[in-house]
Nucleic acid binder design. Structure first.
Lengths: 165, 165
DNA sequence: CGGAAAATCACCCGATCGGGTGAAGGTCAG
DNA sequence: CTGACCTTCACCCGATCGGGTGATTTTCCG
């Protein structure tokens, strides 16, 4: 669970990694379903032989199976659709036109995205393996292109232009 | 389905109304579970008498019930937690619960909202007719309550808590 | 009424940010 | 090849921000 969230945070730009995580989810779900069936049969055997009961009512079986698979269904359903919760803004798509219109370079966009996450200039520099001065230069150019003079204003404008979620 | 979404959208501030909706949801879920059980028994009867089969294998029963209640579980789970999905809608509404939970005062919220618009501390002070020091105090308290130490991080957190759009 | 919480303001200090200038190397189209 | 553009980095300096402490007044609830 934590790894999934972390991965989503760190690599939200990489769809291949996201697909990989989903596959793992499905696999785990299938495995757990099999496990549940086995447990179910095991419980029935225990009940039958442990208490010398040969014929439990059909209603009991139905109830047992129903409860178990309802729980499993709820769990699986939530797990397989948890993406929607994590991604918070489902239908965000980078406005490529705005990028061209404002002449914002690839590197500047990266800095912008990290800034939007609340990182300081030093943290951005560390994340991109460049010096603090470089980040400041990129940000200065960004502020010029966005026609702002504060990072919070930049975030506002960038959101309006659909450059960040 | 659509009515539920509409209701959740329109009245997300009114806990009583939301509770009412939830109760309706639960009631409907219980009703549908009963219905499912009835349908299940009905299907079994049909299978037994329609095809002149007296003793279906226990595995068949298990499979049938499992599939049915898995589907039902997924459905119920998604339905009862659909709130999270609804929250993603673009329309913004202040989360009053979060305000109380985080102990954020009215004045602090005003400062937060102005900060979110990209204003500097001095501009916020001018807008609220208070001194720069006051704004700084409010922001310090906000940062404590939001557990951040930068205004951009505060914006992130505030957005997560649905305190700002 | 009394106390808790909120709102207001002040001062200090170090860290960060914003703005300006300059420069070196790489890429790529004309 | 050459010029435009991107990327990288450096230095400087003033403004702003963040954090801490302390204080007074106002508001509001028990």
């Amino acid at each position: 669970m934590w790894t999934i969230i972390a991965a989503t945070n760190s690599f939200s730009l990489f769809s291949p990694l996201r697909t990989f995580c989903s596959l793992v989810d499905v696999k785990r779900t299938i495995l757990l379903y099999g496990l549940a069936l086995a447990v179910l049969v095991f419980i029935m055997k225990i009940i039958q032989y442990r208490f010398w009961v040969k014929d439990l009512t059909i209603e009991f079986y139905i109830g047992l199976i129903a409860v178990m698979f309802t729980v499993l269904g709820v769990w699986a359903g939530l797990r397989l659709t948890r993406k929607k919760v994590v991604y918070m803004s489902p239908e965000f798509e980078l406005d490529q036109d705005a990028l061209n219109r404002l002449n914002i370079s690839k590197r500047e966009l990266e800095v912008l995205q990290l800034m939007a996450k609340g990182h300081s200039n030093q943290e951005i520099a560390d994340a991109l393996f460049v010096s603090l001065n470089t980040v400041k230069t990129h940000l200065s150019n960004l502020f010029l292109k966005l026609e702002v003079n504060r990072r919070t204003q930049a975030l506002q404008k960038a959101k309006e232009h659909r450059l960040i979620p």
